[in-house]
Nucleic acid binder design. Structure first.
Length: 480
RNA sequence: GGGAUCGUAGUCUAGCUUGGUAUGAUACUAGCCUGGGGGGCUAGUGGUCGCAGGUUCAAAUCCUGCUGAUCCCA
């Protein structure tokens, strides 16, 4: 068997974009669908999504949020109820105009997001302060016709996500909810996917259309581009007014409610691929890996095979008792070397090798995917695999944090900004708060304000563009 | 939004200029040998050449339209 085209044929450093696409396809996470801009998730890709979903569901439940389901079609009359919101989404909406051969009068949108639909229903469901807070999350897909070149997980015309929509009786409670969700997002991404994020607010220019303000978490990818990892919006009463989401308070006065919406998508999978993968392929954080340990038995003849396989089964049972997701690669007719490369391409965190030599020495060989180290363990130390997985998870986050730190620069001079933007990275640069400067910087450098980190207010510096007094130090970067 | 490149077996590809039903590798199937880092030999399977139309006795090849992908720039 040749090695041509089986593995990743470019290096992550030299051709990041091609590298990414190859990893997605060759690790069998996803494939292209026969329609422009759409992808298909394969079991290994979907399994990662299911793992994230189950973690989020647990955390949402602890916060009093339950899951619901909304239909995919939204009548145009509803979608257009909040003007700014509609104007923002309209260019990328897919429309259903016919049922069979009959034209539909009020054409139907394939949901680009569900605010308008959800709030139409919320207005029916909410009458009293006793009905609040109302907190529902929806796991579904959203459709937005992408004009730009698409990329699996990062930009596709249909994407898997969750959208949460909550309603509160007070502004304070709603704002608190926005932050609670952002916190859940941050700790889940850091703990499960081992990707560090920076949280803060979006600028007025970049906020969600229809929101009072948008909070966000952003990450810097190894190629120096920023990726939005999730957003949590404070909607104020911008939707409750047009959609009449009203409630009678304890004093019997009718009030418009205060709302939030928030979402993360399968983009997180794309971020995980970029953050941790290497020239051999995918590297999965143990917590979300569909298989955490793969065992490759090695033997020369039937007799050796029986001895090895019975030991393999014993080890597999021990690991499974500790709830470690274990797979035995007993495929015939493939050399061990082929299997090693195959599992490395697919990013399985730990590989155990057992052959005649190991049986003789009462030991196994364990290879760690994230740093390609091999160590040996005696048969009596099998339970250490649990600790190794935890350690790998920790080390991966640590490594990603260092990477992010190296990609973050303090830039005070615009000439410096322009000179270094080609290499990418997060730039901490003072800003006066004016849209004009933000626009000019975007126009001249392609960089935008990705996030204004919490506690980044600073009026002691000069705006990177106009030199007037700064109000904060946002993070500028080119984005995906 | 602007530009460039490309679509031939699961994958990568030759052939296209100068029209004659497709080349090679790899993968896949079977058997034997192998087996601790992408194995060897032998014999097989697999393609309406992205889609639709046109020119022609004849189209992967020439023409038109459509569609999809990749990369670069704002």
């Amino acid at each position: 068997m040749g090695k041509q085209n089986v593995g990743i044929t470019v290096s992550k450093k030299d051709d990041f974009s091609e590298w990414y696409t190859q990893v997605v396809l060759k690790a069998k996470l996803a494939d292209y669908a026969p329609v422009k801009g759409l992808i298909v998730l394969r079991p290994d890709g979907y399994s990662i999504w299911e793992s994230l979903r189950s973690t989020f569901d647990k955390k949402f439940a602890l916060n009093g949020i339950r899951n619901g389901f909304l239909p995919i079609l939204i009548p145009e009359s509803l979608l257009g109820k909040e003007q700014k919101h509609f104007a923002g989404f309209n260019p990328e909406v897919f429309w259903v105009t016919h049922s069979g051969t009959n034209e539909i009068g009020d054409r139907l949108a394939l949901r680009p997001t569900s605010e308008t639909l959800a709030y139409t229903l919320y207005s029916k469901w909410i009458q009293s302060w006793r009905d609040l807070p109302l907190k529902i999350n929806f796991w579904n897909t959203a459709l937005r016709a992408e004009i730009k070149a698409t990329k699996p997980f990062l930009r596709t015309s249909e994407f898997l996500w969750q959208e949460g929509h909550t309603v509160h009786s007070t502004k304070e409670e709603a704002e608190k909810e926005v932050m609670k969700i952002l916190d859940i997002y941050k700790n889940t991404v850091e703990e499960e996917l081992a990707i560090p994020v920076t949280t803060g607010k979006k600028s007025e220019k970049e906020k969600f259309v229809g929101a009072e303000y948008t909070t966000t978490m952003e990450s810097i990818m190894p190629d120096g581009k920023a990726l939005q990892m999730g957003t949590s919006h404070f909607l104020g009463q911008n939707f409750s007014k047009p959609f009449e989401v009203k409630f009678a308070d304890k004093d019997n006065v009718e009030h418009f409610a205060w709302q939030t919406s928030w979402g993360v998508s399968w983009r997180l999978i794309g971020a995980m691929i970029m953050a941790h993968g290497d020239d051999k392929g995918l590297v999965l954080p143990p917590k979300v890996a569909p298989m955490q340990v793969v065992i490759v038995p090695i033997y020369k003849n039937d007799e050796g095979k029986n001895t090895v396989l019975s030991k393999v089964e014993e080890i597999q049972n021990k690991l499974e008792l500790k709830n470690i997701r274990t797979h035995v690669d007993d495929r015939e007719g493939m050399s061990p070397g082929y299997k090693f490369n195959d599992w490395e391409l697919k990013g399985v965190p730990l590989r155990i090798e057992i052959g005649p030599k190991d049986i003789e020495n009462q030991k196994i060989v364990i290879a760690k995917r994230y740093n390609l180290e091999k160590v040996s363990l005696s048969f009596t130390e099998i339970e250490k695999v649990s600790e190794m997985l935890d350690e790998i998870q920790t080390e991966m986050l640590k490594k990603a944090k260092e990477q992010a730190k190296n990609n973050t620069l303090e830039i005070l001079e615009y000439s410096d900004f322009k000179a270094k933007i080609e290499d990418g990275g997060f730039f901490n640069s003072p800003w006066c708060g004016k849209l004009q400067c933000e626009d000019k910087i975007k126009e001249e450098t392609g960089a935008e304000i990705r996030v204004i980190p919490f506690n980044s207010e600073d009026n002691t510096k000069k705006c990177i563009y106009c030199k007037e007094q700064s109000i904060s130090i946002p993070i500028f970067a080119r984005g995906y």
